[in-house]
Amino acid sequence: MASVLIIDDDDMVRTMLLRTITRGGHEAFGARDGVEGVARFREHPADLVITDIFMPNQEGLATIMELRRVTPNLKIIAISGGGARASLDVLPVAEALGAQKTLRKPFTPAEVMEAVNEVLGG
């Protein structure tokens, strides 16, 4: 059983992910943005962080960089549904910054579990 931190500002998505991960047999806890995510991570370092990219306060790419400064080998899955204003595809950048896996919204619980297991297993 691994510990997974889920950072997403969208309550529906975050709750769904928490439920999926928990049902998948892992411990999961959430944060609403990058700042809160990094704080919770410092309190409670997780084995895996699943983070959204476009979020208020601190977005995902900066969060990824910060988390990797705290824990360089941290396993990260970046998820994104596209920016709210700029139509930019940033997932490749996230990957370049150190995310092991990226998932494009929308995805199914099965896809999430597959990615989680792949990253944790790797």
Partner: peptide, 11 residues
């Protein structure tokens, strides 16, 4: 937003 909503529905 739509992708978030769809993620929730599918999920």
């Amino acid at each position: 937003d739509f992708n978030n909503i769809l993620t929730a529905i599918l999920g």
